[in-house]
């Protein structure tokens, strides 16, 4: 009889602690889900930034831009035919 009560109490403690464990892990998983959500937003923003930078680079590196800068700002010129030497390997 006495040993039965002891077992009963042990089982009761086990049930309660496992219930508390469930509550705890559930809470942790929700916190992690929130964190995941925030990171996903960050990833989206990163991707958006990357696509904008690609476009910006495309515009800045556009051949017409380069040509304008080379000829206008840097005063570069295409060498005349007579100033080009071809080296035979």
């Amino acid at each position: 009889m006495k040993s039965q009560i002891v077992i009963l109490i042990l089982v009761l403690i086990a049930v309660i602690s496992s219930a508390l464990g469930v509550v705890y892990t559930r809470h942790q998983s929700r916190l992690l889900a929130v964190e995941l959500g925030a990171l996903e937003v960050l990833q989206d923003e990163g991707l958006a930034e990357w696509s904008r930078l690609q476009i910006e680079q495309g515009w800045l590196a556009d051949a017409s831009q380069i040509e304008k800068t080379a000829r206008g700002v840097l005063q570069m010129q295409q060498p005349e035919e007579t100033h080009i030497l071809v080296v035979r390997p």
Binding site: D44, A48, S51, R52, Q54, I55, Q57, G58, A61
Partner: peptide, 16 residues
């Protein structure tokens, strides 16, 4: 998807 030229230069890019 992005459309690039043969050297990987972007020719069409989607952005939000």
């Amino acid at each position: 998807g992005v459309i690039t030229d043969r050297n990987g230069e972007p020719l069409a890019v989607s952005t939000p």
